[in-house]
């Protein structure tokens, strides 16, 4: 067993080393408590619902979420709107469908099975409307940025006046958390921008946290199921390992040697 601990600690050092390498580029991001971190991490339901509100009212005019469907809003582990609510949300969007029997395209109210409606017809249209910059699709955005949720959360609050001597072109803004500090998205959030129906005060900080939580769920819709299964799987493995350890001891006790 002693030998085994030695081996195990070696593995640990090795893993730690690789973690260090991967986390080499570190920036000090703004900190907040994420309810979905940790072994039992779960999403804060009301934060997800508020985050969806911020997304629809603010972000969705430029940013698509092409991998999400309206049905996802009612699914377990997500914002968990009631099915009626999700249907109502879907119906509030106009969806292009077709061709019909006459060969024409037509619009109809959205259904649960529809994907989130895209703000632009295509990438070129999005670029044309945004000074050449393409507002990235937000479905997996949190996983596509090195700093993850902390980065998005900080970026939304990182708008400042540029330092003296820095020239910014038209349509370029200064953000202290952006790579290279220049961002083509203007500051979007201001206190009281949205009206939360649950009475939460819509500060910039609160909205940033809510919408980032929503984006985390969008990128990892099965995060809660993963954490729950992970805990069970690891507990199961530990118990099995202990049982196998004692069986091993018993079997090896037949011969005089140490395992």
């Amino acid at each position: 067993m002693k030998k085994f601990l030695k081996l195990f600690s070696f593995l640990f050092v090795l893993l730690f080393f690789s973690f260090q390498t991967l986390a080499a580029e570190k920036v000090e991001y703004l900190k907040t408590d994420w309810s979905f971190k940790g072994l039992f991490g779960k999403f804060d339901r009301s934060s997800l619902q508020r985050g969806y509100q911020v997304y629809t009212e603010v972000c969705s005019s430029c940013h698509s979420m092409k991998y999400l469907s309206y049905r996802n809003l009612a699914e377990k582990g997500g914002p968990e709107f009631s099915e009626a609510q999700a249907k109502a949300i879907a119906a509030s969007f106009e969806v292009k469908d077709g061709p019909n029997e006459d060969g024409d395209m037509f619009t109809r109210p959205g259904k649960l099975s529809d994907k989130f409606v895209m703000p632009y017809e295509n990438v070129k249209a999005a670029q044309a409307a945004n000074g050449g910059a393409y507002p990235p699709d937000m479905s997996v955005l949190v996983k596509a940025r090195g700093g993850g949720v902390d980065y998005i959360y900080s970026l939304l609050q990182g708008y400042e006046d540029p330092p003296i001597g820095m020239e910014l072109d038209d349509g370029v803004y200064y953000n202290k958390f952006m790579y290279g500090n220049k961002i083509k998205m203007a500051n979007q959030l201001s206190d009281g921008l949205v009206n939360y129906s649950d009475g939460t005060e819509a500060t910039v900080e609160q909205m940033s946290k809510d919408v980032t939580t929503f984006l985390m769920w969008a990128a990892e819709p099965h995060l809660e199921a993963r954490h729950q299964m992970g805990f069970k799987a690891i507990v199961y493995l530990i118990i099995l390992t202990i049982l196998v350890y004692f069986s091993m001891k018993k079997i090896w006790s037949r011969i005089k040697t140490e395992v």
Binding site: F4, F8, L237, L240, T241, V244, Y245, S247, M248, I251, W252, V259
Partner: peptide
């Protein structure tokens, strides 16, 4: 059994 134990770890 020994390989099994290590595999579980």
């Amino acid at each position: 059994i020994k390989d099994g134990f290590a595999l579980l770890m």
